[in-house]
């Protein structure tokens, strides 16, 4: 195996750890590249098509490189009721990208997710895992501006 994917050694080699292996790769690289699929296939001894078959089932796995700041707008029930479609619209408009896209500079990517577990502070979104609560238009734009400058 290539040097680059040596970190896989930390994940047990049993095929039942395939998802864990994919998570490890995405944790390091931010997405699952064709190259990493080959490495995983080799490591677990599972054909590449099967690896693809498993990873395409799960929403967590990304096949394209995400931006430096990953924005996840929650569209769980509580957030939806509290106006998350508007939050999506504001973010989308401010960044010029829609759900599942990354901007040209590779600075931001945007996705909608189902519930971050902070429903009582709805609507919420997260940027690289940090949750921002009780969003209205002003705070949403302000948060994006802050990250834009980073």
């Amino acid at each position: 195996m290539t040097e680059k994917y040596a970190f896989l050694e930390k994940v047990g080699r049993e095929p039942s750890n395939l998802i864990k292996g994919l998570q490890a790769v995405q944790g390091v690289e931010g997405y699952v590249s064709d190259e990493s699929i080959r490495a995983i296939s080799e490591y677990f001894g599972i054909p590449e098509v099967e690896v693809e078959g498993v990873l395409s089932f799960y929403a967590q796995f990304k096949r394209v490189k995400p931006g430096k700041y990953k924005i996840a707008v929650c569209d769980g029930t509580a957030c939806h009721i509290k106006g998350s479609p508007l939050v999506q619209e504001w973010v989308s408009r401010a960044l010029g990208i829609s759900d599942g896209e990354t901007d040209e500079k590779g600075h931001f990517s945007l996705e909608t997710v189902a519930c971050l577990g902070c429903c009582s502070l709805a609507p919420v979104m997260s940027v690289n895992g940090r949750v921002y609560a009780k969003l209205d238009r002003k705070t949403t734009i302000k948060i994006l501006k802050e990250y834009e400058a980073k």
Binding site: D75, G76, T77, A78, A114, C115, G117, C118, C119
Partner: peptide, 11 residues
């Protein structure tokens, strides 16, 4: 797995 999008008891 707490899949219900709008529930956070288990969390």
């Amino acid at each position: 797995d707490e899949g219900d999008p709008g529930a956070f008891m288990d969390r």
